[in-house]
Each structure stands twice: as structure tokens, then as C-alpha cells.
Design a protein around this nucleic acid. Sequence first.
DNA 1: CTGAGGACTTGATCCAAATCAATAATTGAC
DNA 2: GTCAATTATTGATTTGGATCAAGTCCTCAG
Lengths: 232, 232
Amino acid sequence: MPIKTFPEIRALPLFHNMADEHFEALMRAGYVQTFPPQVELISEGDPSDFLHIVLDGTIELFAGWNDRETTMAMVRPVSTFILAATIRDAPYLMSARTVEKARIVMIPSEDVRTVFNLDNEFARAVVTELAQCYRSVVKSAKDIKLRTSLERLANYLLRQQSYAAGQARFELPIEKRKLASFLGMTPENLSRAIKSLQDYGVTIDGTNVHIGDPADLIHLAKPTPLIDDPRH
Amino acid sequence: MPIKTFPEIRALPLFHNMADEHFEALMRAGYVQTFPPQVELISEGDPSDFLHIVLDGTIELFAGWNDRETTMAMVRPVSTFILAATIRDAPYLMSARTVEKARIVMIPSEDVRTVFNLDNEFARAVVTELAQCYRSVVKSAKDIKLRTSLERLANYLLRQQSYAAGQARFELPIEKRKLASFLGMTPENLSRAIKSLQDYGVTIDGTNVHIGDPADLIHLAKPTPLIDDPRH
DNA sequence: CTGAGGACTTGATCCAAATCAATAATTGAC
DNA sequence: GTCAATTATTGATTTGGATCAAGTCCTCAG
């Protein structure tokens, strides 16, 4: 694996405090691969052979049942995905595909589990990471169960705005089709929801979002850290 | 804390492999308390002061937003709840209340984190537990996003039947009002859904469930281990 | 035993969102 | 640059589920 990819991975909380020896063992066992868009990296139900780390590009986590499909999450660099399956040596619960061209590190799950058993700092970091993942799925479940689709969209936009350092203008990071699926609605309905947000000072043209009056949108969205703060 | 409560806690996977010394430290720090029904043990947003372990009785985990409320999970003995908040020293994302009279062990989060840092076996067990929790919320999110309420009810009944060792007759473990909320529907709609399941050989009288023709119900429910198998 | 309050059911109505159908706008391949 | 394919929008219609409104049943305190 190319040496230059080490530092950005080493900087991840998950790998930051572990012994050099163990980190290097993981890096030797893993390899970097570049994938074109729309490649299915993982299929739900498969045994978890690798821990994946996104270095570049965007990954969609999705799940299907009975000919229906839904987007569960979008994973952006630099972060890992499907750690829980690797640790438990259980089948993946979600599938993953590249959205854009992506550069991925793949570390055999076997090696991750070995190092997990050898390196206590790593084990602790895994805990922190898993607790974080767990909490973010809980938040997402609350979002779905407690809010209407318009409220989910409004809060989604406010979250994106805060990622964009509060700028009034920013870009939607994913295509509307996937955004609709992520928010648990149809593309048609997302279109209509976007139109109704005009009443709250929001304009979306293509991927370009403009929030005219945050206070107005906040009044509708009623965001709470217990659902909407990703760090909480 | 009464000595006799130790063994059942010690038998939990979370506490099974840790050093005696550390286990005893946790037990000394913790205490057992009995609560009447309908007592709110924790409120979402509060700092996580204690790790809770249910010894007896049933606990409902629920969440609210904007005057709405939804049941997220039911916790039965013997198990812990809200471990992630304790480990991350973050606010609770869900509230908890007793459904029936309940006996609870409360261990100060501070002590849990101390032992977590001292005892590697415990840290590893925490990982397993968190990975399990994470996976169960993911399954629950898939259930909500991919299925209609009738399908969710059908699958819920099949899961309960498997807990009841496959018996054709078994009892609903929670009242219908809460079941409705857990399944993401209104009580009125649950009533109607139950009636439509008569076409699939299901009779529910009070809390008494009878599944006449499992094959028929399975045909509707289309259960999959990737959503419905709790051990998976 | 009895009355009150809560849980459950049933029916009528309303509403949010899905589906169906038809363009319009983008994007990508050549 | 053009055309095909995909994505996005808009409108019409249907449907799943929520809400509103009674009424019944059950439970439990007194």
C-alpha cells in the first residue's frame, strides 16, 4: 500500500492511538483500490471480509427488501464503514456502492479482529467509533419516526448549512433522487416539498441551495441536538 | 448491593470475562433499586450519569420531539441499556420508563468508564455489545423505511412466535397502544391491521395471539434474517 | 360490587404521500 | 454538437394511514 496514504488514515480517531507495530500490520494487510462510479462494493448478507475506509469519493450505504430499496447513509472521506459487521464477524446489514469515482482502503476483517484482540488502544477506539455510529442511527430513526417528510427536509437543509459554515448558499452534496430516498420519500414528493419550502425563504435551483431567512426555516424545522447534531 | 444479584449480572456477556476485582468494583459502586410502573428513569438530553441494568420488569425506551412521542424499544431482563451514552459521556438520546414494577441496577457512568479504561476484557465486551446494539437499530431502521405498517406487524408477530419457540399460541408482551407506537402507527390503525391479518389466519384476542397458518403469514411478511433475526 | 378512567375497537373523514402519467431539463456518449 | 438516457418537475389520481368521534370493554381503586 502506498506510504503516502498512511498519514490520513493514521489521523483517524480509530487508528490514532494504537501501537505503530499494529497499525503497520493493518496497513500491510490492506490495499488501496480505485473504483469507478456505481460499483457495488458490498452486498447486504455477504460475510464481512473487509473493513473499508473511504479516502476519496462518496459511498452510498443502502438496503433492500422485497424489491424496494432505500438509502441509509452517505459516507464521505476520510472514514470507515461497516465496522460493526467486521467486529462481530457477522454478515453486512447494508450494501455499499460508489456514487462517484472512489478510492478505498480495504483491510481484511480477519486482520482487524486480530489487532483488535492485541491492541487495547485500538479496541477502545473501536468502542468510541461504534458508540458514535450507534448514536447516529438512533438519531436517524428518531428523525424518521417523529417527523413528517417536510420537516425532515427542512432539518436536513439546516444540517447541510451548518456543514457549510452557516453560509446562506451551498450545494446539495447528493443528487435529489438519492436525497429523496435518504429522507424516506419519493423524488416527486421531494420536488413538491422543495417548492413548499419557498414559503419559508428557501430556494433550490439544481444543486444550489439558498436559505433566505434561517429563522423562518428554523421555526418550521425545530431542530434539536438530540436528532440533528452529528457530534452530540 | 445484595450479594445474590451478582451472579445474574456476572453471567451477562458484558461482564462475564472481566477481572473479579473490576467486576466487584462496579458492583460496589452500583446499587439496586425497585421502581413502580410508569416511572421515568431517564430523560433524553440528560447527562448520562448511570449505566442501567434491568433485573426484573420491562423498560420502555422512547423519544419525543415537538409534542410527538414514539416507542423506540422495549428492554427486558437481564440486559443493560443506554451503554453508548455512558461510554461516550454524552447526553441520553432516548428516555426510559418502567412499564411494570421493575428492579434496576444503576452503576455510576464514571465508574463504568474507569473500569473500561482499566480492564481490556471489559472494553472488548463493550464493543461486542455496542456492535450488537448498532446492528439492531439498523435493522429497525430498515424495517421502518422498507415496509408498510401491515408488513411490520406481520413480521413482528413472526418474531414473537419464534421467541415463543414456534408455538401457534402466545401472548403479546406489550400493550397494543405501545406496540402501535413501536411499529410506527396509531392504535386505531393497529386495530385495523390486526383485523386484516385475519385473512392470513391470524387471530388476536386481547393479548392472546393465534397464528393459524404460519406459511400464509410468512408469505405476506417475507421475513429476512437481515431485518428480523435478532442474533444475526 | 361499583364507578371512573383508561384501553381498545369501529366508523367516518381528512390528509400526506405514493403512484401513475406526461413533459422538461440535464448529463453523457459518440 | 447532437441524440439518447437519465433525472427532475408538474399535474391527476389513488391509497395508506392519521385524525376525529363514538361507543365498548376492561381494570382497578375504593
